[in-house]
Amino acid sequence: MDTCDEENAIWETVVRKLRAAGCVFAEEEARLLLSASRSTAELAERVDRRAAGVPLEHIVGWVEFSGLRIELDPGVFIPRYRTEFLVRQAAALMQPGDIVVDLCCGSGAVGAALAAMRGRIELHAVDIDPAAVRCARRNIRLADGLVYEGDLYDPLPDELCGRVNVLIANAPYVPTESIRLMPPEARMHEARIALDGGPDGLGVQRRIAAGASRWLAVGGCLLIETSRMQAPWTAELLARSGLLPQWVHSEEHDANVIIGRRTECAGQVG
């Protein structure tokens, strides 16, 4: 058997095992696992983990997001395709030199993507999960952004108050009782703190909205990813916080983003 035949035989074996485990995209996953493995022993170990339900992105250590390869460690929230819509909406509002803050940044995928698209921005990213912060610092390093560990606005420097042009938040918005209905890959292998939005799914969004006007510049915008069902409630949260809300939706991405603009008359909210 020549090398090509041997590689095909290995690939077919991997595909069969992944299909048997219920992997919908077995062929694509097999190719990725083969290319990412340095030995047959490492390949076998990775295939076993994938067949056991470990997310492919955690096994290979990266995910493609907005054209970038975002590094991921086990347990860190995996950026979703729909969040690329959030990135595009934010990028459309940004100008060179803008101050951009990414709350609940996770792996730093959103901030890294915005820096790659727009460049020359002052980027600050925050997450409460130490594992996510470690990832974000690797992914954002090329953008010369700063990554802070802490709870929402708490670790941000005071000098940013009233100066932030774009504030982005892909905060957890799954209602607590709905987490059990999520795919096993998410509920078993991603940090719960990155999923759980409280009883109504709006707990973290509520806190973000309440503090936004203190940090946003006049004319600055807060963008929050949410679900279609929760979008009206998210918009109301922003309106109650003195922001002018707009709901934008993408059928292609199955994504919903609420954009809240701080106007001249918006008051500073704690």
Rank of each mutant, 00 (worst) to 15 (best):
M117P: 01
M117K: 14
R118I: 10
G119T: 05
I121Y: 00
I121C: 01
E122M: 03
A125D: 01
V126K: 08
I128N: 06
I128E: 11
D129V: 12
A132E: 07
A132N: 07
V133Q: 08
R134T: 13
C135R: 02
A136R: 08
R138V: 03
R141F: 08
G145T: 03
G145L: 01
V147Q: 06
V147H: 08
E149Y: 07
L152W: 10
Y153L: 10
Y153G: 03
D154G: 04
P155K: 13
L156H: 08
D158G: 11
D158V: 12
D158C: 09
L160N: 10
G162I: 08
R163L: 10
R163H: 08
V164K: 04
V166C: 07
I168E: 02
A169D: 04
A169V: 07
A169Q: 08
N170W: 09
N170T: 05
N170M: 06
P172H: 08
P172W: 11
Y173C: 06
Y173R: 11
Y173T: 04
Y173G: 02
V174G: 04
T176C: 06
R180M: 03
L181E: 15
M182A: 09
A186H: 05
A186C: 06
A191G: 15
A191C: 12
A191P: 14
I193Y: 01
L195R: 10
L195S: 04
D196R: 11
G198H: 09
P199K: 13
D200P: 06
G201C: 10
G201W: 07
G201R: 11
G203P: 01
G203V: 02
V204N: 02
Q205M: 13
Q205L: 12
R206K: 14
I208M: 10
A209P: 02
A209T: 00
S213D: 02
V218M: 10
G219P: 07
G219L: 10
G220F: 09
G220W: 09
L222N: 00
L222P: 00
L223P: 01
I224R: 01
I224N: 01
I224G: 00
I224L: 15
E225Q: 13
E225T: 03
S227L: 12
A231V: 08
P232K: 07
P232N: 05
P232Y: 07
W233C: 05
W233P: 04
L238R: 00
